[in-house]
Design a protein around this nucleic acid. Structure first.
Lengths: 222, 222
DNA sequence: GTCTATAAAGAGATAGAC
DNA sequence: GTCTATCTCTTTATAGAC
């Protein structure tokens, strides 16, 4: 059995298949961003990953299965990373926010591709009305909103200045999250007037504005 | 000549062709929203409009030409309508805003389809890197931002309360516009926590927040 | 101006060799 | 597990009838 002769230098069967699967997924992500889910054929995905159509079909039942896997993998991966940062109990709020900003900066390199891919995927999920896909997406969006809501709530309590946000934190988190995506889209399709710091600039302005409104509300009610 | 016998009751040749073209465009808009630009075939578009493939190709050079026409037609139409409302010199600011809100309410019925179609079209333009299409889209976005910027600026001068918005009106307009789209997307893919008045609620909160911040800035600088 | 028929290319998916 | 060959269906686009 040739497998026993080199147990470490080469990948095991299972590892190699995982590698093939991962390469196909990465290839699909690239091509989906570039040509859309419908615009990228199975042959192109396989070839771009260095395989043939046969390899594709021995790793995924069909094209739809690959789309589902890609969406779930990316969503879970992202949620885990952001979750690990934001929920880290050993870091202060400021430290966590700084780490999160760094994470966003690192991601910004592929912001365009990631935004297009994400858009392509939700569009695909909405169109196919696939409940499994839609549930995953919904979960991701709720998670993002909630993280932002908690961050905002913390921003209002930490400095010991104003005790009350001017509205439900969940609503403020929703606004922040929606704004981020909206700004990234604007930056993609109408870049004029959008610096590369628009998102953080906008977030900063909103926090300051809400603090001002919070102070006014507190003042008038006391 | 049978044409001369009923000069009014039936459409002229040119009118009929315009009607065919319009029907094909409407059909394409529906199917694009439903299945994506790549997912809707020429045959499906033609058949759904009540024609055959032949009729399609005698009205459009190819599929790409239809996409371009659709995008330009919708963009121009929308800009004209909104422009006519917002730039109406005979109406007061409040009247114009009320008319605009009514326009948005009327559109809300097809909000889902319109959002998906718009997303599908910008995605298609970005992917094909078609400069003509991209320029049209960019124009539309700039126009929307500018209208909002003017509306916000007016909101700060009309009541005679605070003279200065807390930031460049163009930036505030960008935020409002991005936020609108972002919220509509959130409402589509993760409706939980988004009432059917989220957009107007968010806009209202932001205006109030910016006014509060503007008052603070004015107070501290005087 | 619109329809029917058809050409030519590309898609998804399967079967069998290795 | 991956490749090559192949089947079948759909696609875009054109040509010629009416």
């Amino acid at each position: 059995m040739s497998r026993a002769t080199r147990p470490r230098t080469r990948l095991t069967r299972a590892e190699q298949q995982e590698q093939t699967k991962a390469r196909l997924l990465a290839s699909a992500a690239e091509l989906f961003a570039e040509r859309g889910v419908n615009g990228a054929s199975v042959e192109q995905i396989a070839e771009h990953a260095g395989y043939s159509r046969g390899a594709f079909y021995s790793n995924f039942a069909d094209k739809q299965a690959l789309v589902a896997t890609l969406l779930m993998e990316r969503t879970r991966h992202e949620a885990e990373e952001v979750g690990a940062i934001v929920l880290n109990p050993e870091a202060s709020f400021d430290e966590r926010m700084e780490t999160l900003r760094a994470w966003h900066r690192a991601r910004a390199v592929h912001a365009r591709e990631w935004l297009i891919l994400r858009t392509e995927l939700w569009l695909h999920a909405v169109r196919t009305a696939d409940r499994g896909l839609l549930d995953r997406i919904e979960e991701r969006e709720r998670f993002a909103r909630q993280m932002l809501a908690e961050g905002i709530a913390t921003a209002f309590t930490t400095p010991g200045t104003e005790p009350t946000p001017p509205d439900d934190p969940a609503f403020l988190g929703l606004i922040m999250h929606a704004l981020e995506d909206g700004l990234l889209i604007q930056r993609l399709i109408a870049p004029e007037g959008t610096s590369d710091t628009v998102v953080v600039d906008a977030v900063d302005l909103l926090i300051r504005s809400w603090k001002a409104l919070g102070r006014e509300n507190a003042g008038s009610s006391s």
